[in-house]
Design a binder for these strands. Sequence first.
RNA 1: GGUGGGUUGGCCGAGAGGCGAGGCAACGGACUGCAAAUCCGUGUACACGGGUUCAAAUCCCGUACCCACCUCCA
Length: 458
Amino acid sequence: MTFRLYDTATRDVRDFVPLEEGKAGLYVCGLTVQSEPHVGHVRSAVNFDVLQRWLRLRGYDVTFIRNVTDIDDKIIAKADGFGRPWYSHAAAMKRELDKAYAALNVAPPTYEPLATGHIPEMLELIETLIEKGHAYPAADGSGDVYFDVRSWPQYGELTRQGIDDMEAAEDADPRGKRDPRDFALWKGRKESEPETASWPSPWGRGRPGWHIECSAMAGKYLGPAFDIHGGGVDLRFPHHENEQAQSRAAGHPFASYWMHNAWITTAGEKMSKSLGNSLTIPSVLQRYRGIELRFYIVAAHYRSHVEFSFEALDEAAVGFRRIESFLERAGDVEAGALPDAFVAALDDDLGTPAAVAVIYDTVREGNKADDPRPYAAEVVAMLDVLGINPADPAWGTSGGDDQKLTDAVDALVAGLLEQRAQARADKDFAAADAIRDRIKAAGIEVEDTPHGPKWSIS
RNA sequence: GGUGGGUUGGCCGAGAGGCGAGGCAACGGACUGCAAAUCCGUGUACACGGGUUCAAAUCCCGUACCCACCUCCA
């Protein structure tokens, strides 16, 4: 059985055939670090994290590049609002992003290049495009350089659009463009912009256009041709279309497969960066554990639109706790083998919903069995693939004060449970229940198990 | 105008021609002193109208509604 994935470019599910046997080169568009990350951003990261884990488990030597855009219009504009330089703002938001990734157990990529660290590579690519007749410096002396879409007949092939069918942007400032659809490879510095946000170039000081960074960095770290390019659906056009056009026009075959994750919306609206609402990662993590949010994300297919709601997240969290309590009952086990159905699910375009169903089936079998451990071993292995194994150290240890607090509560509850045990032994159930109710009033649930009573925070 | 996607039971969410994915909730039962947990059972769900087929949620035609992208976006 081979891994199959949906390729946006061909619009069908195809066998994954890497360019080089046993290796997989993966480039994913990360974020523009302009504001706090929200649930939608993290969905993309989690989806591609699962892809990375699956490819590795499938035996591929994976090179995973996920870039960070740390210079662009919005960053400059937003930094102004904070009263700090653009680079300071970008760095601060990058730290928030890293925290969010860590909180969701998103494994780090092989390398995480910054746009500002690759200006020479971009300039080189732009010059190649000019030499080949696919780009030109603006005639208006602005210092801008544009990609000439009319010079590239395949323009629009990724998203199956004809140039003449495209609407020109309403706010399109024709500037020095030959065609309104031409896009900026390089932006000449404007007087209003900070000097620090510009770099020297053959066309004067300026900064890179948005798309060129990905072409340059993918080329540098993965080579002119690589296997998979990913990102959110919104990036298909213009970003990915432009990336592909400029890379291929420069003579690079570029990506073999394109993967795009769907949106998470709220109240029917997409989470735009401008909303800045309650769905930032820090705010969601005040109410739910990272592992619960990740489970919620992974329980839906990456290509399906998700309408975010706290009710749905609640349900997911409750369901996930059933898996966790099964593992607690089973005790410590090593990861075992993956059930065939689970492997088949992930091989089929990362079918995580079907994979989660296999986890639940296994949990049920384990709950029925005299010895749950073999089942727990399978469950642990499956959870590891999805990045939601509660025992994974990535979720952090609750040591220190938490542990001291737990010990203190345990000592107090233990005394009460002894009294209750005595009452039960005396068949004085009214007294026994009164003790249990009193403990419950403090927010602690008592359950009787074959191994004696157990308490947990309710 | 162009391009892509969607509409599944009380709710979430898979599936892409033929045994009702899975979860949450609800109800009944087993277990329990009672609970909890766990297990067993209970649902005739596929936007609408036609069509193809022995068989359609799944394919075809049409209709309605929703969403995304068209140079800031995960």
